[in-house]
Amino acid sequence: MARARDFSVTELPGATLVSMLVFVALYAPILVLIVYSFNAGESVAVWGGLSLDWYRAAWANDQVKEATWVSLKVATGAAVLSTALATMAALGTTRRPAFRGQTFVYVMINQPLMVPEIVTAVALLLVTAAIKKATGYTGLGYLIVAHAAFCIPFAYLPIRARLEGMDLTLETAAADLYASRWQTFRRVTLPLLMPGILAGAMLAFVTSLDDVVITEFIKSPGQDTLPTYMLGQLRRAMKPDVNAISTLLLALTLVLLSAFFLLTRKRK
């Protein structure tokens, strides 16, 4: 006998169906992309059988290799730089009683999440152009610093979350056991904070890897990252190797995000 369902005030009729549709809308295109990256045909969107041709083509393409290299260098540099800064910012904002202007500081640290990216891009362009002119330096440094700037909030959030959940008596205990401030940081705070720092670095890395707008504005000639290279391909006849590259980027992102999830998940 079917049991009558309990009346529930929290259940909205149709909400489940809508969420499922949203889910499909989110992931169906990505599925299509993955499937077509294994396409044997010449066209981006006409199925011609299964093959790894486009992965081979991408692998053989020097421009792709070059762009991958730039992407990895920039993302690594930006992740390291932004994580170091975010760690300091998190230590500075959480290890003290509430202070005047605390909310303001939080908002300022997180502002790259809210300011339209194009605005940040234009602003950074103005600054980097001026510096380029003055110094003559045209290396990857600009991209790394620019990426680090908008990666800081992504690195900051998991680090701050970790710090706020940390038991302050552990540091008191370290001080009680003759550790200086620096030793307490090195031997207790930092190891306990490590999962947060790694998680922050991964988020920053993924965010940098994915960026198009700011990179497009700042890059000097020959500094294409994977996303800007693909954008460039779009202007010509798009070949299915873009599908293959996208799928690989997706795979890398998934790996990093899974690691992030494992690191930040609550234990016990």
Binding site: D167, T169, L170, T172, A175, D176, Y178, L192
Partner: peptide, 20 residues
């Protein structure tokens, strides 16, 4: 004198053992 320079040690109510 700061705590790290006092020859005095504490057993905390919550134990405060280093989990790592």
């Amino acid at each position: 004198l700061p705590p790290n320079r006092r020859p005095v040690n504490t057993v905390f109510q919550s134990y405060a053992l280093f989990p790592h």
